[in-house]
């Protein structure tokens, strides 16, 4: 375990970035109270209960950081938002529409407005980088191949990849950081309003983590997207987050800004911060 004082000092440094991000997003959620995504009293169990009376909201323009130990259901929340899973009880609403009971086809309209960056990028390993980024455009738009090629180049350049050098490569030929960046390029290909990140920095070296967090901030700054970031990488999360939800045993035990979390006297929050 790290020395608590030294650690919290590091966290405060990260908070400088978080506050700056918040200012760029137009202030705290109170200033923009419209929830784009809302989960209310959600219960979900597989063999064991995963989510228990979980309620949370994501507001327009913010970057919500969902923290929690492994196996607490953080990634499950993202799958509920995408309607890849349905809750046993409770409701999930996106863009003001309840999606809990919608069919696969009915939910597509909403899902197309959401981009997802998967933990291990989840690139289609039989497709090149170009075809991976082009995939959502071919599936969900009427763009010509020429226009698709232009958009793919633009998105690859946005994530600091060289289209000429990289777009013919297969995912297996890329480093972990490059795969994540291609995953981001694919997620933003259709200019979604919301981007979900599932452990975007997991398994990356410190420089690659920096690259990915810079990219998330660039998306906030230049595209103004609403983001939900699921991670247990506290330092990376605090660099980009405007608000934090801490998950424990299936429900949220802390809600607040990163600085409120650091200042919290709740024993579990303290233990989580000190152990991270």
């Amino acid at each position: 375990m790290k020395d608590t004082g030294q650690y919290l000092e590091g966290i405060r440094t990260e908070l400088g970035h978080a506050q700056a991000a918040e200012r760029r997003n137009g202030g705290p959620p109170g200033a923009t109270p419209r929830p784009l995504i809302e989960l209310q009293h959600v219960y979900l169990a597989f063999d064991q209960p995963v989510l228990v009376d979980l309620s949370m909201a994501v507001y327009e323009g913010e970057t919500l950081l969902v923290l929690g130990e492994s196996g607490q259901g953080k990634s499950t929340i993202l799958k509920l938002i995408l309607r890849l899973l349905a809750p046993d009880a409770g409701t999930v609403s996106i863009f003001g529409h309840e999606i809990t009971h919608l069919s696969f086809e009915e939910v597509l309209e909403f899902r197309r407005k959401i981009g997802m960056v998967f933990q291990n990028a989840a690139l289609f390993d039989s497709l090149t980088v170009f075809d991976n980024v082009a995939y959502p455009l071919r599936e969900n738009t009427d763009l010509s191949e020429r226009e698709i090629a232009r958009v793919v180049r633009e998105k690859l350049e946005f994530v600091d990849l060289d289209p000429e050098r990289d777009m013919a490569k297969l995912p297996a030929e890329l480093s972990g950081g490059m795969r994540k960046r291609v995953g981001v390029a694919r997620a933003i290909a259709t200019d979604p309003e919301v981007i979900l990140y599932d452990e975007p920095t997991a398994g990356l070296d410190p420089l690659a983590v920096q690259t990915i967090t810079d990219l998330i901030k660039k998306l906030q700054r230049e595209k103004g997207v609403t983001s939900v970031l699921v991670t247990h990488d506290l330092r990376a999360g605090f660099r980009v987050a405007s608000r934090v939800n801490l998950l424990r045993e299936g429900h949220i035990v802390f809600r607040g800004t990163p600085e409120e979390m650091v200042a919290s006297n709740d024993p579990y929050v303290r233990a989580f911060l000190n152990a991270s």
Partner: peptide, 18 residues
């Protein structure tokens, strides 16, 4: 199976593909 465990199938669904 490999696509399933590497979340490629989830990715397909995310892009609206059955």
């Amino acid at each position: 199976g490999s696509m399933r465990i590497t979340e490629q199938i989830d990715a397909l669904q995310t892009f609206g593909t059955d």
